[in-house]
Structures are given as structure tokens and as C-alpha cells.
Nucleic acid binder design. Sequence first.
DNA 1: CTGTTAGCGCCTTCAG
DNA 2: CTGAAGGCGCTAACAG
Lengths: 355, 355
Amino acid sequence: MSVEDGRATATLDSVARTAGVSRATASRVLTGSPRVSDDARERVLAAAASLSYVPNAAARALVTRRSDAVAFVVCEREERFFSDPFFASVLKGAHRVVAASRRQLVFAVVASEDDRERLVRFAAGGHVDAAIFLSVHAGETAPAQLRERGVPVVLVGRPPEGVTDDVPRADTDNVAGGLAAAEHVLGRGRRRLGVITGPLDMPSAEDRLEGVRRAVVAAGGAVGAPGGPAPAGEPSVAVVEGDYTTEGGRRAASALLERVPGLDAVLAQNDLMAVGALGLLRERGLVVPDDVAVVGYDDIPLASAVQPALTTVRQPLEELGRESATLAVALAVGGVDEGRGGSVLRPRLVVRSSS
Amino acid sequence: MSVEDGRATATLDSVARTAGVSRATASRVLTGSPRVSDDARERVLAAAASLSYVPNAAARALVTRRSDAVAFVVCEREERFFSDPFFASVLKGAHRVVAASRRQLVFAVVASEDDRERLVRFAAGGHVDAAIFLSVHAGETAPAQLRERGVPVVLVGRPPEGVTDDVPRADTDNVAGGLAAAEHVLGRGRRRLGVITGPLDMPSAEDRLEGVRRAVVAAGGAVGAPGGPAPAGEPSVAVVEGDYTTEGGRRAASALLERVPGLDAVLAQNDLMAVGALGLLRERGLVVPDDVAVVGYDDIPLASAVQPALTTVRQPLEELGRESATLAVALAVGGVDEGRGGSVLRPRLVVRSSS
DNA sequence: CTGTTAGCGCCTTCAG
DNA sequence: CTGAAGGCGCTAACAG
């Protein structure tokens, strides 16, 4: 500890002075340039330590045009964000990668127009070198605004029409996931399927549903005719929109029960809704899987903890986070997003006792 | 849209030029100074819009020494952070306040030494004007480091010894909370109490336990002698350390059952552990509350959803977030932390059917 | 009300 | 290997 520390924040100049070198040399040491004598390096490091020196990020960013931070932006209200472990897993994967690149992950919630505006100023203003967006709903303008202002953007999941064209993204094959779930129950003789979708303003919901449709059609069934009594043996599908919450799953299951006589399989587009359905079915005196099979989506920890354990379509969530972060870091280095591309991960059906 | 936009990011200078005014005037308009003619204002605004101008945050921060951002730092691994709704509620309250002050809330996880170092550089470097810390464990050095470098710090909850002296904070009265829980069960005739604490490297756990001790002593009981058979009618307390997770609650409840013959009340220091205890007790064939009363802490949504609904000590979580954010914003404006103080909120017992 | 003039702290050529 | 010098984009006095 030097005689006087703290107080006025140390600057590169003060470090250089107490080390007895020029600012340029001090800068070289602190940025890790090799062209410095060991002697000078040592003295600068000592001075910096004794002064608790931390480089002024603003000054540095002004000249380097980099902040060494990456934003992780979730376009949902806090409740949703926290109640669904989906986000936690993706964030975790992203955090790993960003931290490994020695960058700071800053995490923001955009739930209102005000939030959006503020985030754009923050990010486009230079506080982050790239941004990862999750849960992008129809009409979300932030990604486009950032791109327009030169901030590289990565999306997790396929964005709705018109959000941005041709942005790098990390995604899973939702059609394949829906298909796998439906084929599974059809293969076990289920015929009257009910689907509980996510919010339909996100393509992931549509895609998973599309997968189900394909499976049903391939099995010789009709789609979308919820009412009419289908010939025995011919599969049918009814669809109810949910909201990715447990409570929403309950409501949707109830609606399904009302609309589909003989319902024998429920395909929920996330595990939280599947759990809600499980609860409601039990209350109605139906046994899972004997009377009704239930399949979830995501494979969050809860899926294997409930009774009966949930058959579900596992998404590689952490990997999704890692993938998106890897893209973001690459773009942060490269400047704009000439990168394109991205990757599509494969979901995998995990069969447990609910089906 | 002007003929050429995007491309080279717009600067104040380019805005001023296309508006036909000086940089100073443009700056005045953009920072909301009143001393500008309507005419000039209009032209500058138009120019800025047509160029998609966003002020360079680094340049601005360099001169104003403010970033208009506040950090919300949680010192936990991602899992914990997301699995306990406690954090979500506090974050939500903080987000409200920070957003209302037109600042960006940036949220960071510090789970490793690397994370810590990076955060200190990020925050002390000027990317945020203040930092709110949650879940500060013994030995956490980040708050002190930031203070030393001139960044105002606010703590949620009382910090362990030696983390920082005399930092403004928002807290609840944990002794009162523990006391209320214990008095409640004692008042209903329970005599063999078991406490499942949180991690004991945080004072909140110690404080809640202290509250229980006081209640037991006041009721003429002995404390800490888990083994020996106490005279009938004389209350006793056994203590097991938990980790704030559901699974940890199960384990702790099991340990308690083993160590305390005739156990008739479990006081868990958060709801997640109480739920774990509930599950284990049921498996062991014990009926809640007939055989054993269970009391939780926090009052997260799950508490009222489980069967039987959990009696618990409600913490005003969102208010805790609002309080801490209010302090942080005040400090961000005022510069350093001459503020001190902070406030202590009162928890409240919510009686449901588990006791 | 507006333009001119200085830097904020740092990195980076460019000479030595 | 090191020092001197310039400028990143913006705001804040200071004159006009």
C-alpha cells in the first residue's frame, strides 16, 4: 500500500509517473505488449497495484471502439424469465463461453418500449460489442435497430417474420422435435392427440406444431378438425395455444378435454405446461399414462422430478447458449456480422413414464 | 430515411453538420438543455433521426464520468440464482426503480474468481455508476474493491464480517422473522423444534436462528442440546445447516428426524427447503401439520401452491429490490456514498395449513 | 441563443 | 525498447 491511495482514482498518467516511465510505456505494459523491458514492466505493474489502478473503460473504449462486453437480452417479463428454467440453462452456457473469452456478460430484460429504447442506446452507444437475443416475439425491433447501428446481433431461435433478415443464430430443429413427440405417441397406439402450443407469435411454436402435423398426416390422419368424430383408428389433432406457464398448461389441458372426446395424448410444447396438464388430468381422475399420455418439451430438471416422470423432447439448452455466445464473441472480434450462418442443433426424445 | 444511412456510424459532428449548426448546439438539443431555439432543435432532431444517431457512450462517459447504468450483482452460481424465485422478485423490484430513473440495469453473475476480477474491471472502469450486491458470502471482496475505486455500492442483506464496513444496504429484520416463526409453533404447543438453516456464512441465516433461540429461551427451553431427552413440556431446538435448495431441505429434514425423537416442528429458512422437507415427511408417513408442523421463509409463489399450503415468513422481496435500487440511484447521482444508512424492512408471518 | 475552445484518459503511430 | 504527439466523440465553460 502506498502512502495515499484510493481518493482520486488512479489514471494511466499517475501510474506512469510513479513508475518513472512515460504513459506510452505504461500503456504497453498494461495492454500486454511484448516490446517492453522487464524492468519497466515490473515497475509499472507495481505502481498499478499500489494505486489500485483500473483502466478507464470509457477512455479505452473511445479509442479502441470495443468494450469487451457482450449483452444477453431476454425479451420477456421478469416473471416468465425466472419461472422457466429454459432461460437459466441457455444463460449458463452463454456465460461460460463469454467469460472464457475474458469478456463481461451483461444481462438485460426488455419488457417494455422504454426498456427497448434504453437498451438500444446502451448497446449501440458502445457498452457492448455484440448482443444475444432470446425469446424474440413478433414485432420486436431491437435486433434490427442494433444491426443498423453496427452492433453485431445473434439470435437464439428462429425469429418471427420481419424481425431481421439473415442474422446469425443458434437454433434447434423444432419441426424434428414435434415430429418425434408425435411419432412416439402414435407409435404407441394413441389416436386422439391434443397439442398445447407456446405463444404462436414465435416460430418455434409453429414449427413444433408443424412437426406434429406431419407425423399425423403420415399416419393417415386428419389435422385441425377438432370437433367431428374421426373414424376409429384414424389419428386426429386438436390444438390449443398456451403461454409456457404451468397454469396455462392446466387451462389448456382442460380445454382440450372439453373439445376432444376420447383424448388419449397431450403434447405440450414445454415442460412447464406439461406439468400443468399432468396436474389437471389427475384432478379429473384420469391416469397418466394409462388413459392419457403426456409429452413435454425442453427436459428441464423438473421433468424428471414429477410423478409420473415426464417423457419429453430434450433440447440441448446449454449448448444453445454456448453456440450463440461463440457466434457473438466471433462477431465482437470481427466487427460487423459478415459471419452469417449459425447452427441448428438436434433435439432428442427422452422417454420416461408419462407416455 | 436519408439517401445514405447506416454505414459509418453517425457522430454528433455529422448531425450538427447536416442540421447546419455547431456541435455545441447539437449537443444541447440532444442532452435536453432548454437554451436552444425551437428552430435549431427541430433541425437537429430531424438530422439525428435521419442518421439513426446514437450518442457514443464512451465519449460521453469520458467527460461526464457517468454511464447511466447500475449493476445488479449476484454472487451465486447460475443454478442457485435461477432456481430460487427469491432473486427474481428482488431483481424485479430493482429493475422497476432503475428503469424509472432512465438508467440501464445490467445484471451480472459472480461465481468464480475470474468473474469477480472481470466485474471489478467492468464496474470500476466506469461502465456502471453504482452496484447492488446480493447474496454476499463470507470472503467476498468485490464490494470492497469497488468502493475503494470510487464506485458506490449497496448491499441487500447484512454482509458477513469483514466484507465492507458501513455500506448502505436494504435488509429485513431476520431476527424478528425467526422469532415470529418460532413463537408461532410454540404457541400451538409444539415442543421439539428442528431448524433448517441457510448457508451459515451469511448473517441472515444466523440472525433467523437467533430469533428462534430467543423464542425458545423465552418459552423456558434449552437450546442446542439436540440429543438428550428434554423434560416434557420444555421446548428444545436442533439445528441442521441447509443450502437453500429443495434437495437440501429433504436431506436436512431426514437428518432432523434421525436426531430428534418426537420432532414436531420444522422451521426452514427458506421455502424451497421447506418444500423439500414436506416431501420427505410425507414419504416417511408423517402427516403435516398433525404430526409435524412446517414453516418456511420468503413466501415465494410456490409456498401457497404446495399441499398443504405453507405457513411462512413473508419477506417484502420486491420492496427490498426497490429499496436497494433507490439507494443505488441516489448514490449514482451523488457520486460517492456519503449516503450511508438504508432501511430495515419487517417480515410478516403468513399462517396457512402446514402448521 | 449560439459558436469557439479545451480537454476527459487512453492507445497508437512515428521518431529516436 | 522508449518518449512525444495526436485524436477518438462528446460536454462544458466561455465569449459573442
